[in-house]
């Protein structure tokens, strides 16, 4: 059998990788952010997941505009990072779990989610950064298998918040129905966010009030953000703040009540309101 031990939501700002490679975690600029990962790592030491299902958005490493799937599931034996064009250090390949991937595909398509399946998939900072933040030691990362799930937030229309929430619930049902030989422990990850905008005259937009309301909603009122359209979310959270769709997906997979293990919120990391949350299924 398989069970979900919790959901980790984490920002994936590219400059994090540079800071880690320079060992800058203790510098005044970075410390309030990196301190938020100590309780995450302590929790991971306790629950010791075998697999991470990583809900993320690609930024033009794996997918281009020629083919842009709304939802894609990685089904590869391993996932490679690669040169992203602007110089963040490349990390070692991540082992996959094709058997669980194909089970997810069967189960999700069985629930009428029309997925793209990928037997080769490059993963960018949206996967590598949160993995490095949670497991800074490469040996620890090598012991975790991943199943990447990609959500399109590159080109409108994005899947709606409601649809992402439903996908998360379906992922939760797929994992809990997985007939694994071992007692498989799965952690969900939702990467990106919170409010930020990189481009245009509104570059640098941050909405602390909205972010705090969203963070609060994750435990008691998890579907709160599904009331908003894609355009609403761009207006309220910035063009890239829409990455909260990954958080919603990862939250919904807990299928019911949730307890907050830890939470951190810090402005700014690069141009972003950085958020870190761990939720456990309510007993």
């Amino acid at each position: 059998m398989a069970r979900i031990v919790g959901s980790i939501m984490s920002t994936h700002v590219p400059s994090i990788a540079g800071a880690m490679s320079r060992h800058a975690e203790g510098e005044p600029y970075w410390k309030p952010f990196f301190d938020g990962y100590e309780p995450v790592r302590a929790w991971l030491d306790e629950v010791r997941p075998d697999v991470a299902v990583v809900v993320h958005n690609d930024h033009g490493l794996n997918f281009f505009l020629d083919k842009m799937p709304t939802f894609a599931v990685g089904c590869a034996p391993q996932y490679l990072h690669a040169d992203e064009g602007w110089g963040i250090p490349e990390v070692e390949p991540f082992p996959g779990d094709p058997q669980l991937s194909w089970h997810l595909v069967e189960s999700l398509i069985g629930e009428e989610f029309d997925l793209t399946t990928c037997q080769e998939m490059l993963v960018d900072h949206a996967v590598t950064n949160p993995m490095q933040l949670c497991w800074p030691d490469p040996d620890d990362r090598a012991a975790i298998r991943i199943v990447p799930v990609t959500v399109n937030t590159v080109m409108f229309p994005y899947p709606s918040a409601r649809r992402c929430y439903a996908l998360g619930e379906a992922i939760g049902r797929a994992i809990t129905s997985y007939d694994a030989e071992e007692d498989l422990k799965v952690v969900l990850m939702g990467t990106g966010g919170l409010s930020h905008q990189l481009e245009g005259r509104r570059a640098g937009f941050i909405n602390k009030e909205f972010d705090l309301r969203f963070l609060e909603s994750l435990t008691e009122e998890p579907a709160w953000a599904t009331q908003y359209s894609g355009e609403d979310l761009v207006r309220l959270t910035g063009s890239q703040g829409v990455e909260l769709l990954m958080w919603l997906t990862a939250r919904a997979a807990l299928l019911g009540g949730a307890r907050k293990v830890t939470s951190n919120y810090h402005i700014p990391i690069s141009n972003t309101a950085a958020g870190t949350v761990v939720l456990e299924p309510a007993a």
Partner: peptide, 16 residues
């Protein structure tokens, strides 16, 4: 698109 333009900007080591 901002994600692809970021790769152009990266050539000149411009950050966000």
């Amino acid at each position: 698109h901002p994600y692809y333009l970021a790769k152009f900007a990266g050539i000149f080591r411009l950050d966000v």
